[in-house]
């Protein structure tokens, strides 16, 4: 646990050392660099139904054909 915490702190510190000017952010602004899910709602629902350990999804509900 301590190692994980130290790693996160180091990561934040390293990020703080990196300075990226606005004119250097063309690649970061590319649509494919999104943090959002890149799959559609249909596939998200399939995963939510088929993986008991999926968690964190409020759209699992039913409609799974699994009776």
């Amino acid at each position: 646990m301590k190692k994980v915490a130290c790693s996160i702190v180091l990561l934040v510190a390293a990020a703080g050392c990196t300075r990226v000017a606005p004119h250097q952010r063309g690649r970061l602004a590319h649509p494919s660099m999104t943090q959002s899910s890149v799959i559609g709602p249909g596939e998200q629902h399939v995963r939510a139904v088929q993986e008991g350990a999926v968690g964190g999804s409020l759209d699992a509900t039913s409609g799974c054909g699994c009776n």
């Binding site: 996160i8 990561l11 990020a15 990196t18 990226v20 970061l28 943090q35 964190g56 409020l58």
Partner: peptide, 21 residues
């Protein structure tokens, strides 16, 4: 459902996201 996270710009071409829920 509660979640928290942060994204870090690592370079002009890399981003890292760390989160927990």
């Amino acid at each position: 459902q509660m979640a928290a996270g942060a994204s870090f710009v690592l370079s002009p071409s890399s981003v890292l996201w760390l989160g927990a829920d």
